[in-house]
Design a protein around this nucleic acid. Structure first.
Length: 539
RNA sequence: GUCCCCAUAGCUCAGCUGGAUAGAGCAACAGCCUUCUAAGCUGUAGGUCAAACGUUCGAAUCGUUUUGGGGACGCCA
């Protein structure tokens, strides 16, 4: 299959040269037309560059058109104020069918990333309690972005940072201990910043079951270890519910124990200073709006210092680029972490931070804040149990991460056309049933005889898939794939309804249409696979 | 006060490396099943792209300002 956009760009670049216009490929914009009367593709180069050589756009277009002879083009027209409209030969458009049928699930993949290693850190929920809907969003998005990057040739490591050190974990340990004492009949006062959830009582019960009543004093290390283990296990169970797998769980405590902090401090030495007993990092030297404390006056580290050490640790594990996915409350953190990495000598684009916006849930048009079961905030588990893994993943990843997400629970549960995931699945199931019913007719992948609007729309859209995947990966925008899927499903349903595929009086045309059906089904499958969703053969 | 995100149809959202008449789904209305899955299709209606100014042959898209909404600004993590 010829990549028509780049082909046309090349053609235009060569054609413009004799006019004294030196234009790079990147400066030439080829766009898909909205209206078939403008052909298949259009360019605005004449509008853009005519004035450089003191011509009217329309005159340049008229002269240029004679240079634009090409075997793939049926004709080229000048339109409007100076657009060039390209009408592509049908044979060129149908060539995509053969490519898809040859490459199957490889169609759409590329080597754009050239094997570059990307470490994508996401979720990293604190092991102090159950994961909530915000974590669900991070989990689904991160996982789909990772798949997307893998598709375009990056080597991706999915990483979860376990915040198992620091004050909050001490609070967790203390909370479990107090609940444990409580079980033994003691009157206790829970720590002010403690954790009061039912999960803590459960853990205390398990501790008592396992160790009996013999623990008399607060052994911080012991309770931390127990607490983190239990909570992390729960988190991992939840991630499985979401269909998310991490390659690396990296413990903050390990990062600390392995001496990364000391090493990092040493490297940062030129940028450190003391003030009122605290150690500051001069992040303002690299664009932050104020300097940040690394070591508090009581000798404890802030969160920031181990986190710098952690980023250094990730990079030392042979990673070319880091991507962090964070919630909106962390946006202030971007400048300081980038500053720190710059001080450590890394190029500015080493760290990329995706700031994800908030999630709200609605039911019957009303925002749902509390879980019906627990009366607390809605957990990831509540969400998956309510709508299922596929819908949860699709609804989350179908929206751009940088906009707030309104998750409509009713919609995700609806098994009708209202639900975009069902719409796409239904399209796939219908195509599969055609292939089943028409398997005696064979497939004609040459595409000869396909010339209706419905067929051409579908063909043009199928051709776009590889570049859509690349574009989505580069923008880290899974929503672009969802848009593509909805459009593909729409073209598929129109084609299905309007053109009869299996017609035994016209076996040649049927075979050609079946090949198109097979190709379309394959791309529906490939695109859903990016979301980690299996296409359904029957519904 | 500073910073980040956002504002497009009644609702949920696309479109934003500037381009021809601003799109989709839902909701509303009118049609389409004796033949491949009606969980579908076709059509009608619905808009001051928050506002103003600017850049441009051309602005929903770029810039400035204003308004409105959400969030962040710790020796918390």
């Amino acid at each position: 299959m010829i990549a028509i956009e780049s082909h046309l760009k090349q053609l235009l670049m060569n054609a413009l040269a004799p006019f004294g216009l030196k234009v790079t490929l990147d400066e030439i914009v080829i766009e898909k037309t909205k209206d078939p009367k403008f052909g298949d593709y259009a360019t605005n180069v004449c509008l853009k560059f005519a004035k450089n050589i003191s011509l009217k756009p329309i005159d340049l277009a008229k002269q240029l058109i004679n240079q634009l002879k090409d075997p793939h083009l049926q004709k080229v027209e000048v339109a409007g104020p100076g657009f060039l409209n390209f009408f592509v030969k049908t044979e060129t458009l149908t060539a995509v069918i053969q490519d898809i049928l040859r490459l199957n699930d490889q169609f759409g993949k590329s080597q754009l990333g050239q094997g570059k290693r990307i470490n994508l850190e996401f979720v990293s929920a604190n092991p102090t309690g159950p994961m909530h809907v915000a974590h669900a969003r991070a989990a689904a998005l991160g996982d789909v972005i990772a798949t997307l990057l893998t598709h375009v040739g990056y080597k991706v490591t999915r990483e979860f940072y376990v915040n198992d050190a620091g004050g909050q974990i001490r609070n967790l340990a203390l909370s479990i201990y107090m609940r444990y004492r409580e079980l033994l009949g003691d009157k206790v006062t829970l720590p002010e910043d403690g954790y009061f959830g039912k999960d803590i009582i459960e853990i205390a019960k398990e501790v008592r079951h396992q160790y009996g009543d013999k623990i008399v004093s607060f052994d911080e290390t012991f309770f931390k270890k127990i607490g983190v283990e239990k909570q992390l296990k729960r988190i991992q169970e939840d991630l499985i519910l979401m269909g998310v797998h991490f390659d690396v769980y990296r413990s903050e405590q390990d990062v600390r124990n392995e001496g990364h902090i000391e090493k990092t401090l040493k490297k940062l030495a030129p940028f450190l200073y003391q003030d009122q007993g605290a150690t500051y990092l001069k992040t303002t030297a690299y664009g932050d709006d104020k300097d940040r404390v690394l070591i508090k006056s009581d000798g404890q580290y802030t969160y920031f210092l181990p986190d710098i050490a952690y980023h250094q640790d990730k990079l030392s594990r042979n990673q070319d680029q880091l991507i962090d996915m964070l919630g909106p409350d962390h946006h202030g953190y971007i400048a300081r972490m980038k500053a720190a990495l710059a001080m450590l000598g890394y190029p500015a684009d080493t760290l990329e931070i995706l700031v994800m916006q908030l999630v709200t849930l609605t039911e019957n048009g009303v925002e749902v804040k509390m879980s019906k079961r627990t009366g607390k905030g809605i957990t990831l588990r509540d969400l998956v149990e309510e709508v299922g893994q596929d819908a949860a993943r699709y609804f989350i990843a179908a929206r751009s991460y940088h906009n707030p997400l309104e998750f409509d629970l009713d919609l995700a549960k609806t098994k009708t056309n209202v639900n975009p995931l069902y719409y796409a699945q239904y399209a796939h199931a219908r195509l599969q049933s055609l292939l089943e019913a028409g398997k005696d007719l064979g497939l004609d992948s040459s595409g000869s005889g396909l010339d209706s609007i419905e067929e051409l729309d579908l063909l043009k859209h199928l051709r776009l898939f590889p570049q859509v995947v690349n574009q989505a990966a580069q923008a880290r925008e899974t929503s672009i794939i969802a848009q593509y899927i909805q459009q593909l499903a729409s073209y598929t349903h129109s084609f299905y309804t309007i053109r009869r595929v299996i017609d035994r009086d016209q076996p040649k045309l049927s075979a050609a249409r079946l090949a198109l059906v097979k190709a379309s089904a394959q791309i529906l499958k490939n695109s859903l696979a990016i979301f980690g969703i299996d296409a359904l053969n029957k519904m």
